[in-house]
Design a protein around this nucleic acid. Structure first.
Lengths: 101, 101
DNA sequence: TAAAAATACTCCATAGGTATTTTAT
DNA sequence: ATAAAATACCTATGGAGTATTTTTA
């Protein structure tokens, strides 16, 4: 499991749709669909019920969402804290412009 | 930033050596070295001081280690909780054998 | 000078894209 | 009939490996 899986999962859960979440994440709907299927396979759980007008969280999905938010929040905080520390990366390494590091 | 970066980082921090950590992680020393450099680039911080008999955490590295452990612990707990829920993945999808999901 | 890390390549697994089909209402 | 997800297929980024060089106690 990688943070990418959780970012994608949370977006789908919040949008209630692969279609919408893909737009928000700036990835294609099939790429997103495959990442979620991969996550479901890794966890051995179906996370969404698919319908013809979107998706709905399964009980497992609801459980995951709470934890995913915690993890993503902690990851964001961590990046902020460490990135803003005073031991700067030497300038000669060149800049790095992350969407999220 | 992905969980892989944090897993690798924690291993290096605990072993005090890329060389040793690579063996523990079952990856090559150069692969590990590049992943850590990538993480340092993303965070804009040098995480380790390199010496000829291993590595030592920088202040930024020490800060990251605490958070990395939290995140990795939370991720492990999450996988356990969700994986052991009752909504089993249908058998027809075939099994999945992760080292860690 | 002897360890450990960094570099230089090569390879390939997989994330991501486009086109299309399937499904459910 | 239509809107959304799944599938098929292709491309390419970057993760991983081997061989080698550089560094520093």
């Amino acid at each position: 499991m990688e943070l990418r899986h959780l970012r994608y999962f949370a977006a789908v859960a919040e949008e209630g749709s692969f279609y919408q979440a893909a737009q928000r994440l700036l990835v294609s709907q099939p790429s997103l669909s495959r990442q979620i299927m991969d996550l479901e396979r890794r966890l051995g759980q179906r996370l969404f019920e698919r319908t013809s007008r979107g998706v709905r969280l399964t009980p497992s999905g609801q459980a995951l969402l709470q934890h995913a938010r915690q993890i993503l929040g902690l990851a964001a905080t961590t990046q902020k804290i460490v990135s803003e520390a005073w031991t700067r990366w030497p300038a000669w390494c060149g800049p790095y412009r992350p969407d999220q590091a």
